[in-house]
């Protein structure tokens, strides 16, 4: 009997260790490619990969001095700002009746609003391309890309705000952050709708179609850093807001 228990606990321990090792493997799998990318961005090797010949900041200087990147960055930020504004305003407005009132067809409306999340972006891109150029005869521009991206980001804001109407301001901020992030990263809708302008994802895409370049490694590392910074801010923000509210409570009398 005692031997039996011993065997079982050994097996349990082995199983536990095995699972922990597996968990570690998953994190290595998730982060190794990203870590390597950042590592190679400091590598003097002009192929941008192994082996590391010497450490350098040259690729960062190149990327920062590249005016095509400046242009793409400013277009990306302008588009993202407009997309964020549209999706927050439209999405927040729509979230209220969706939750609060007992409207007929509420479930139907809900499904229709959430459909753009279920449909691949590719379909949104090509169908809007046909609408804009084939039916409306509009000139493709960053504005048409803004419309296309908003179709895709607004449902996320609706979902987020509808789920947390009690805490409206944090929900709106989270929605704005999500819309902004999705917009920065959006490729396929923008690719079809922006005409002859480029955003950062499109610039990167045209560079990497033919393989690795160290300058893109540097650009990628800076973008990764920026998105991690935004993520950290997003996690810090609720705490900051709570602290601010606490600080103002005696005067504001709980209104905030």
């Amino acid at each position: 009997m005692a031997g039996d228990v011993e065997v079982l606990s050994t097996r349990a321990r082995v199983g536990r260790l095995g699972l922990a090792a597996y968990g570690a493997f998953i994190y290595v799998f998730l982060f190794a490619p990203i870590v390597l990318l950042v590592l190679f961005s400091f590598n003097a090797n002009r192929y941008g990969t192994f082996p590391v010949t010497a450490w350098t900041l040259k690729w960062y200087r190149d990327a920062i001095g590249n005016y095509q990147i400046h242009d793409a960055l400013s277009t990306t930020l302008k588009v993202a700002a407009e997309v964020t504004t549209i999706s927050v305003v439209v999405g927040t407005a729509a979230a209220f009746p969706l939750v609060r009132s007992r409207l007929p067809f509420r479930n139907g409306i809900r499904v229709a609003f959430i459909l753009p999340i279920m449909i691949p972006g590719l379909l949104i891109g090509v169908s809007l391309l046909v609408l804009f150029t084939g039916s409306l005869h509009w000139q493709l521009s960053p504005q048409t890309a803004v419309i296309g991206q908003s179709v895709y980001t607004t449902p996320f804001v609706i979902l987020l705000v509808a789920a947390r109407l009690q805490a409206l301001l944090p929900a709106i901020l989270a929605g704005a952050l999500l819309a902004f992030t999705l917009s920065l990263d959006e490729f396929i809708i923008t690719y079809f709708l922006i005409g002859d302008r480029i955003t950062l994802p499109i610039y990167i895409y045209t560079q990497i179609k033919f393989g690795i370049t160290p300058e893109v490694n540097a650009l990628a590392s800076m973008l990764l850093g920026a998105s991690l910074l935004v993520l950290a801010l997003a996690f810090a923000l609720p705490q900051v807001m709570r602290a601010t509210r606490r600080a103002f409570r005696p005067r504001a009398g709980g209104v905030a």
Partner: peptide, 9 residues
């Protein structure tokens, strides 16, 4: 939360 394109890259 990091770029989709960069993860493929």
């Amino acid at each position: 939360w990091t770029s989709y394109l960069l993860r493929v890259y």
